[in-house]
Structures are given as C-alpha cells and as structure tokens.
Write a protein that binds this DNA or RNA. Structure first.
Length: 552
DNA sequence: TGAATCACG
DNA sequence: ACGTACGTGATTCAC
C-alpha cells in the first residue's frame, strides 16, 4: 500500500510567522489542519512533516524560508515554487491561459528596509495560505490535458523548483575562497592596495608606459576613444581597440596595451573592492537568479558568479581535508540536439563518450577545434568565415538534426514561438519586431525587417537546444542531490557552484570517488528521465581537485 | 542611459 | 548575393 503523496504549503501568516497546510496531492483533501507556526519552531515543524510525509513543499518563493531551513540543516526532498511555475506556465504553448508573475514587482522582504537581513525576515504581505492555494489551483487548471504534455510540463515545474532549492542551498553554503591568496595575487600584479576608484601603482606605471610607447603622454588607456586615437596617431590602422583585434599585431607598444587591458580588468572586476563586497569568512556567496533568462538558464546577480574568470579560479580552494568534485556534461548541446531531433547519425556519434572524436574519425572534420566550431555554427545559425565549410560537412551528415533547427529558425522568422523538449516556451516576438515586419515600404525598412527576422530565427534555432540543455542540467542536479541524500551525505557533500553545464561539489577527500559515481549516475538518470529508456548517452567529465583552477 | 569591451557557458 | 554567430553580467566611458 503506497501512501498518498502530500502537498505542504508554506505561507505567510499575517499574525505570526508562517502558516503551514497539508493536503493530499490527488484529491486536495486536508491531511492536517492548517497551523500557525512561530519562527522559533518553524524549522522543527518542517523537519517533522518532512520525515513523516515527505511532501512536496509548495511556496511562492524560496526566499525567506529556505535560508532558515538551510541554516538548520533541514532537507526538503521535493518542492513546487509557485512564482517560477507561474512564469513557465504563462509562456508555455502547452498550458492554458494564465497570467504572468513578475518577481521583481512582487513585494519582497529585501525591498523593505526593516527586513534587510533575509535570514531573519518573514516574506511580506500578499502571500496568505488562501492566496497560495488559489494560485496553485489556477496553475493546475492551466496544465495541459494531454497526458504526455502534462507529464513533461510537470517534470519541468518540479525540476525548476528543485533548482530553486539548490540555488538557495548554494547561496547559503558559499564557495570556499582563499582570500589571502587572492590578496597576494593582487599585490603581486597591481602593487599595494589603493582606495576604491584609484589606479594601483603597477597599473599607473603601465598606463604611463603605454602613453609613452604610443607617443601620447597622459593617455588614459581605459578610454576606448582616447586609445583608438592614440593608436591611429602611432600608425596602427585598427578598427577598434578590442583585444582580439590587437592580438594580431606583433609590436612592443601593442603588447603593453594588451598587458594594461588585462591588468585593468583584474583590478576592476576582481580587485580588493570585489573581495570586500563578496567574500566573507573565506567563502564567496553569490546570488543566483532563476526565471529571468528566456531559455531557463540561470543568471547571477552580484559578484558575477557565472562569469568567474579562469585566471582567478586558482584562489577557489577547498578547506583542509576537503576537495572539489567538478563535473561537466560533455558536449552537452550536440547531444541534446541528437535527442530532440532524433537524428540517427548524430545519435550514433553521441553514443561515444567523445562526440567530437567520432566526427574526426568519420573524417567529417579535421580536429576538435573544427568539430566544436562546426557544431556551434549549426546550433547558433552561423555560416560566416571558416565555420561555413565545417558546417557544410556536418549538415550533409546530420540532415535530420539540421532540419530540426532550421525549422525552429523558420518559425522564429515568421514570428511564431518555439519551445523546449519539456515545454518551456520562448518569448513571443515583441511589438517593435511586429511593427518592423509590417512597415516595409522602402528598401531600407525592408532590409531592417529581414535582418530582425533572421535575428529572431537565430534566437529560436538556439532556443530549442539551449533551453532543453538547461532542463537536462536541472534534472541532473536534482538527481545528484537526491542520490547524495539517499546515501546519507547531504551534510558532507554540498553543491557549491553551478554554471549551465558544470556543477561543483565540496566534500571530504575520502568521499570524492563515491560522489563522482553518483554524479555520473545522475547524468544517466537525467537522460532517461527526459528522453526515456533509449536516451542518448550523457557522459560527464569529472575532476577531483582541491583547487578549482586545476579542474580543466 | 547606452555603447564598448570582455568575462563565462 | 548577402551578412551573422546564441545566451548572460559587470565595468567604464561618453553623452
């Protein structure tokens, strides 16, 4: 006899702290009368319900609740985050009409000065239990009737929600950061620390050298206009001051310019001010943002977590006795394309752990570089320069996959929408785009309209792949989290970082191999969860290292 | 506020 | 025949 699966709602209680209600998922029957819980007993009550019913925890957003639970080491297995679900349903072509939910404009604890510290704040008004129940009911009503579409969308909503739990856990845990090593690196490369918005000694010296080398004393190399003028005056016929353009010129003055740009960037994006703001107690605490990127990828606000330069990863170091287990989905997007397009040849290539090597062995491409370039060209919709020839070879062999992305591109060019494998819809063409398509009186506006149409085509072509890759990654993380908890390692093995197709765990050295096995298993499970028993292969590459810079 | 530039996938 | 790569965030300059 299997117990009824339960839904536990966490709502704000206008009188106290939280209001928690327990219901049967299928019938909506009340399993336990709604109860008011104060802040002191909140975590204990949630823990008790979790052990007894293992419910799916329904909440408007994680903020306000999950920080507390994380601090108390309370583990929630399943969640349903209403705000995120609402966004997805609003955009999904499979779902019925339902209004959008704007997290930004919704009242939030952090927008109120007296609730600056989210750790000790209950969510603000507008989140009563009755309102949450009504919101959930409306979302259920908007779910598609078709059982396959329904199951897929349900999976997406659950995966997105577990992602929100993981994001909250990672924010709370933070990424182990060697602040002393970071400061030492800054001292070595920039010189002594200076007040914010001042130029460090070595950078100032370099700026003077650049000015002298170009014959423009007092030049500010941070100004692209000034720098471009100075370069022209010194006889360099460059179009811009972009590093990749300057790199083609072999000249000592240019070398100085490039050196300056690199150092200046380090000082401004990961200098002392960054450390002061983002690293506390030896850990970097980023803020992940879900539900804003169209494709379902995550964004990060603050600290630029998702653009962590490779050059700075050397100071990401695990504490003594611990190590990082760094895993990334190998050639994820081509495999996703193989799965969604059902291209038999591409699936054959994907049966290998190294898809690019297969392309080389089949003599479709010369080397890995071309293999990667060719696949990107196919997925992004490019046909320029050197990638054209490579793309052509792939197009011939993977016709079915090409037809799939081409048809997504054509739909976008017509102003139609596309969606991910599980049913995440892309944003509709906006009013400006529609207007551009309608006003084609003269040649110039016709060209502009065509350019906008092609641009949208490239976006939708990429969307079908990128959005499905994003949901594979969510399901992968969710499975990994579940396997780790089942093994009893939730407290020991913590996910500390995530970037689109790469996850980083921190764990005791002696658990690293076991954890690596669970991550591989989770990847295979993710493939089967999305695409069924005959899913394409989803290998992951794993590095065990105490220093993030050594991972790849 | 927007453009340039550069960091990441 | 034509012209392009897809998606983000942070900083700084220039208006």
């Amino acid at each position: 006899m299997s117990p009824t699966s339960a839904l536990a709602f966490i709502a704000e209680d206008p009188e106290g702290f939280a209001r928690i209600g327990l219901y049967a998922e299928d019938t909506g029957t009340v399993l336990a009368p709604a109860r008011t819980v104060d802040k002191e007993s909140f975590c204990a009550v949630v823990q008790q319900l979790e052990s007894r019913h293992a419910p799916r925890w329904v909440m408007l957003r994680t903020r306000g609740w999950c920080e507390l639970l994380a601090a108390a080491d309370v583990y929630l297995a399943k969640a349903y985050v209403l705000s995120l679900a609402q966004r997805i349903l609003h955009r999904s072509p499979a779902a019925g009409q339902i209004e959008d939910f704007d997290l930004e404009s919704a009242p939030s604890p952090s927008s109120q000065p007296e609730f600056q510290d989210a750790l000790f704040a209950a969510p603000a008004s507008g989140e009563t239990l009755e309102e949450l129940l009504a919101m959930y009911a409306a979302q259920q009503a908007a779910m598609p009737a078709d059982p396959v579409l329904r199951a897929k969308l349900r999976l997406l909503l659950n995966a997105e929600s577990v992602g929100a739990l993981i994001a909250s856990e990672m924010e709370n845990t933070g990424l182990s950061w060697d602040e002393r090593a970071h400061r030492a690196l800054l001292r070595e490369q920039l010189g002594p620390q200076v007040p914010e918005h001042h130029r460090p000694a070595k950078l100032a010296a370099l700026a003077a050298q650049v000015g002298a080398a170009l014959g423009t004393p007092g030049l500010n190399p941070d100004s692209p206009q000034e720098l471009l003028r100075a370069l022209h005056k010194a006889g360099f016929a460059v179009q811009s001051v972009r590093a990749w353009e300057l790199e083609h010129i072999n000249h000592p003055a240019i070398a100085k310019v490039l050196e300056y740009k690199k150092l200046s960037r380090l000082a401004s994006t990961h200098g002392d001010a960054w450390l002061d703001q983002w690293v506390a107690d030896g850990r970097f605490h980023p803020h992940y943002v879900l539900g804003t990127v169209a494709s379902g990828r995550w964004a990060a606000s603050g600290g630029g977590a998702l653009q962590l330069p490779h050059s700075i990863r050397q100071v990401v170091r695990a504490p003594a006795g611990s190590t990082f287990v760094v895993a990334d989905g190998r050639q994820l997007e081509p495999r996703i394309l193989a799965a969604i397009s059902q291209d038999a040849n591409l699936q054959k290539a994907g049966a290998q752990d190294d898809l690019y090597q297969w392309l080389i062995d089949a003599q479709l491409v010369r080397d890995r570089h071309d293999a990667k370039l060719g696949m990107l060209s196919v997925i992004y919709g490019g046909s320029a320069g050197g990638s054209a020839a490579v793309g052509a070879a792939l197009k011939k062999n993977f016709g079915t996959a090409m037809d799939y992305v081409d048809s997504a591109a054509r739909a976008g060019e017509r102003g139609e929408g596309v969606h991910s494998f599980l049913g995440r819809g892309c944003p509709p063409a906006d009013e400006r785009w529609m207007r551009a398509q309608r006003s084609t009186r003269d040649e110039a506006s016709q060209r502009a309209a065509d350019a906008a149409a092609r641009s949208r085509g490239r976006f939708t072509r990429n969307f079908v792949v990128q959005s499905t890759a994003a949901e594979w990654a969510l399901v992968w993380m969710g499975h990994a989290r579940h396997l780790i908890h089942q093994a009893g390692y939730s407290q020991l093995c913590r996910q500390v970082f995530f970037v689109h197709d790469e996850i980083v765990f921190e764990c005791p050295v002696e658990l690293a191999d076991e954890l690596a096995g669970m991550i591989r298993t989770a990847a295979a499970l993710a493939g089967r969860t999305l695409f069924g028993a005959h899913s394409v292969n989803f290998p992951v590459s794993i590095a065990v290292t105490a220093n993030y810079a050594d991972a790849k």
